[in-house]
Write a protein that binds this DNA or RNA. Structure first.
Lengths: 144, 144
DNA sequence: TGTTCCGTAACTATAATGGTTACGAAAGGC
DNA sequence: GCCTTTCGTAACCATTATAGTTACGGAACA
């Protein structure tokens, strides 16, 4: 099981898309997500590094989307907040004196990579705009 | 990040496939995986429930594959040892007085399900026989 | 009857996650 | 220049999952 960061990040971006150009503070976002502003900032840090959002400190500041909701795929969101590999190899290396143990990790690495790529490809078909439309059908996107 | 159970289970099944009808003890398997016999038994419990392996206590006992390696897909292995959802929704429900928070979990649930299905579909294309061939090319499968 | 082996409970150590407090720094209104 | 707002981040705690380990009961079989 992964962390809920991906779910939280998607929730936040959808909220930002709904509110359009208006910047939202961590406090306001935290209320919608039902958590602490610091948790929001932690999650947003990854999104900012990926240039999906920008932040502005000071009065009237907060968070805004960088691009159009139609152009933010969930694959990009996933990679921004869950960098690690989804399927894990064992921390302790297998016994290299066993013919299987000697090579299994390399074999599995390839399979795992393919499987994760398949999942990412599926996530790349969905955008924040799609999520917003699905989640709040009545929303008229406030475009900049 | 998931646990390494899926990797360990695949390792074990590959080892059983290599050894054919000969039953392997938890001790022998643990040596190849480089861990403790109890950890092996814990992992095997899921595989037994899924009818992928059978165990036999007592002298000369151990673990054997139930079916042919060609018929055991990694999707079946994955589902046997990692039953939970891969992508997680937040433990705390969002704020239902927010239009996004009210509905986002249901929307995300659908997306997550599709993404996991895409990964599983990819894993269903690979069998234990494939892994064995890839990992130990020289292996002649000892068939029953 | 004794050895071998699984089945499982119990305990521990470690790491990840999420929640919280705290405080520094940047932005902008006055 | 000051003061308020807000982000950025460190630090700490509680909770949970995983993996490792010991221990012991019960089944199989010679």
């Amino acid at each position: 099981m992964t962390s809920s960061r991906f779910a939280v990040a998607t929730h936040i971006l959808t909220l930002l898309a709904l509110k359009g150009a208006e910047p939202l503070t961590s406090e306001v976002i935290a209320e919608s997500v039902n958590t602490n502003p610091v948790v929001i900032r932690r999650t947003m840090a990854g999104l900012r590094e990926a240039h999906l959002v920008v932040s502005q400190p000071g009065a009237g500041g907060g968070w805004r989307l960088v691009g159009a909701p139609e152009e933010i795929t969930l694959a990009a969101v996933f990679q921004a907040v869950e960098p690690e590999d989804l399927l894990a190899l064992p921390t302790k290396s297998p016994n290299i004196s066993c013919p299987v143990g000697r090579t299994i990790c390399q074999t599995l690495g390839g399979v795992f990579h393919d499987a994760e790529a398949a999942m990412t490809a599926r996530l790349a078909c969905v955008t924040i705009a799609d999520v917003l439309r699905d989640s709040v059908p009545s929303a008229t996107l406030n475009r900049r």
